[in-house]
Design a protein around this nucleic acid. Structure first.
Length: 280
DNA sequence: CGCCAGGCCTGCACGC
DNA sequence: TGCGTGCAGGCCTGGC
């Protein structure tokens, strides 16, 4: 599913093709996403010029001068650019038609994604206004995480996945970052010491940055590619590896459920106690 | 054929 | 009382 690095990869792939382009129109093929696609969107978008593409958490923001098209890929969404308005595949719910003939298509079989419009400053949109800091920005630092986790009895894994604490760190990357930091996912967030908070900030950054770098290398055939840009192969330490040997120590990777989501960890590399040691 | 993953919002229950 | 916190429900379809 598209996580933060995939959204960033899609952004970087689309950016050179979209910025500065005029929008000729839009097509709503199926408005029933997580929220209905506003019926007036094609009229709103027509004749606007795309000024900038940005990302906030896993939201892709297309700034159109005075307003923002807000896109979310949910669990199964993809955005692709086509050189013409050729036959649309199944599950294409929304299309952005550029004046130069190019078409941006949102395909999302599970329809957990979103296409929304916000007039004015996008950071004021209700979905974006209360998000925590971006994990790759300076404001997400050791001190911030330490303060944000005080008196929180919930598991550190679930606190990191709380978008109000830090924005856009999904299930795969929190599992991987916790492994790298040597922290067990079920440890109460409030029990993390300052050193482990610092380590976790560092491994979250590393994990996301490496994934973005990998995605960047798959951008070459973004336009009209048969594949799914950003859907790159990845080498996970623990995610999806229950029952398999830890790549670091050989112990058997364990799986558990936290808040209806799967967590994976190495019982040897990730301690539940308060040491500040971490690996990698 | 039935189950289930999975992001992330909303709504509810609870305690200080 | 109000707010922060935690938990559960709901949306979907492809793949097993």
């Amino acid at each position: 599913m598209p996580e933060l690095p995939e959204v960033e990869t899609v952004l970087r792939g689309l950016e050179p093709h979209l910025v500065g382009q005029k929008i000729a129109g839009a097509v709503i093929r199926n408005p029933h996403l997580r929220w209905p696609i506003p019926a007036r969107l094609p009229a709103i978008l027509r004749n606007r010029t795309i000024h900038e593409l940005r990302r906030r958490a896993k939201y892709l923001l297309i700034e159109c001068g005075g307003g923002t098209l807000i896109l979310h890929l949910g669990m199964s969404g993809s955005l692709r650019l086509f050189p013409s308005a050729e036959h649309a595949e199944k599950h294409v719910h929304f299309e952005l038609l550029l004046a130069n003939g190019m078409t941006v298509r949102l395909r999302d079989p599970r329809r957990f994604g979103a296409v929304l419009w916000h007039e004015g400053e996008s950071s004021r949109h209700p979905l974006l206004a209360r998000l925590g800091p971006e994990p790759l920005q300076e404001s997400f630092d050791a001190d911030y995480l330490y303060r944000a986790t005080r008196k929180r009895g919930a598991a550190i894994k679930q606190v990191i996945m709380d978008n109000h604490v830090v924005a856009g760190v999904g299930n795969i990357y929190v599992n991987e970052a916790l492994f790298r930091a040597g922290i067990r996912p079920q440890l109460a967030a409030g029990k993390l010491g300052a050193a482990r908070c610092a380590r976790l900030v560092q491994t979250i950054r590393e994990t996301l940055t490496e994934a973005i770098a990998q995605g960047g290398s798959s951008l070459r055939d973004f336009v009209d590619s048969g594949g799914n840009p950003g859907h790159f192969q990845q080498h996970h330490w623990v995610y999806g590896r229950a029952g398999q040997p830890c790549r670091a120590c050989g112990a058997t990777i364990r799986q558990l459920r936290q808040g209806q989501r799967s967590s994976f960890y190495c019982p040897a590399c990730q301690s539940s106690r308060c040491s500040s040691s971490g690996r990698l």
